[in-house]
Design a protein around this nucleic acid. Structure first.
Lengths: 222, 222
DNA sequence: CAGGCAATGTTGACAGCGGCCACATTCCGT
DNA sequence: ACGGAATGTGGCCGCTGTCAACATTGCCTG
């Protein structure tokens, strides 16, 4: 199931797991994916990692701490989808491209919520960001693993808005605080579609709602 | 603690509680108020109602069912605050009044989330609306208690938008789907302020964010 | 008015969970 | 080589949700 292996590479292991922390987070991600934050359960995660239930406490203070690490990873997943979708936009003229990139970011946010509801709910399950999950554990490394430390949805959205300003499609005095409006709208729609009264909307009506909300964002920035 | 009494009015009771279902929902509301949906626990609720833990199953199918009833009541609480704040607006000229009423509805939504975070989280905790908690139990009553059967946040918001149209402040072709945009914005901001990265914003910045979001809603409707 | 049935509440049991404790094993620096 | 630090194990407790069996009461019917 889990792609996390111990350093020796094989499935067998000695007394020590070798990569337990990562394995536990990965197990937590699987649990969260289908069951949301409430499914991120210590004993299930440890079973999944093939380890005794108390081994968890060598890497996390308690269940909430593990959940926070999983939530952090869910946020990263969301950010990565946003970045990927944004970079896929291929328009040459700068102004429409900047607008399209902002729209793609918003769409990605909503699509992520709808295609990975468990992860989305977990990402915003009220857990504080996990302190020891942000920067890479080894600062002196030549960081060949990747430049982005920990992508954050807020930063991705901000970048898209900054681009709108650079291009001249958004007045600079409107820029200040624009994240609040745009982010609230896409996040709110996502939440309402998952857990709110919009939960039972038929598919075409959902598409209409998405278009309306994204359109309202664009109009409020214009 | 609980204001729910059995029919005989006294604290003592016989074998039957007399009003257990209501007492359990009230107990669930107390639990949800401080601890959110995860705190709505069968055994705690039954203890609170002074009843054996299995008595719950005579009124609710399982814990999720009780939680759904509590969530429904949380939604009602939210709606009532929205209505109260909306009706408090005292402006004579129709157009600014309609705008102010819509703004009051949005403010009420956000204020509710911030002043009763446990209830707000519970209201949107993914539980389906409880079937047997909607219409009043006694339809043949002369309904002196109130005309609104079960106030719904969506309906309150819709009414405010309808008023904008009647007054001429909102073009009729813009009315369609306007709930999605307005509701998403206030709901999203509320969620982000409670459980999202906006959680740690200082108070004045929070006020600024609220003003920005409400302003963006008004502008997107204009 | 009496009997009986349905509604309601109780007791007991079980498995799963989070969190402690003491103990076992292994890794690594000296 | 050795000894402490890091890591993993097993046992235990109280809590929870849920089931099954039983007890009590309200109320309808005859």
């Amino acid at each position: 199931m889990s792609q996390v292996e111990n350093p020796r590479g094989g499935a067998e292991r000695g007394y020590h797991h070798g990569n337990l922390r990562e394995a536990l987070v990965a197990a937590g991600m699987e649990l969260a994916r289908t069951g949301g934050p409430n499914a991120v359960v210590l004993r299930a995660a440890s079973r999944h990692a093939g380890v005794s239930h108390n081994a968890v406490y060598r890497h996390f203070a308690n269940q909430e701490d593990l959940l926070a690490a999983v939530a952090q990873r869910c946020l990263t997943q969301l950010s990565e989808l946003m970045i990927e979708r944004m970079e896929r936009i291929a328009i040459r003229r700068r102004v429409p491209r900047a607008s399209a990139r902002l729209g793609a970011v918003g769409r990605a946010y909503i699509d992520f919520a709808r295609s990975e509801p468990g992860w989305f709910r977990t990402a915003f399950s009220s857990a504080r960001p996990h302190p020891a999950d942000g920067p890479a554990p080894e600062p002196p490394t030549s960081d060949a693993t990747g430049a982005a430390p920990v992508p954050n949805p807020y930063d991705v959205l901000s970048a898209a808005l900054d681009e709108l300003v650079e291009v001249g499609a958004l007045a600079r005095e409107r820029r200040n605080g624009a994240e609040y409006a745009a982010w609230s709208a896409v996040h709110g729609l996502s939440s309402l579609l998952l857990d709110g009264p919009l939960r039972e909307l038929p598919e075409p009506e959902i598409e209409r709602a998405i278009d309306i909300v994204l359109g309202a964002i664009a109009r409020s920035l214009a």
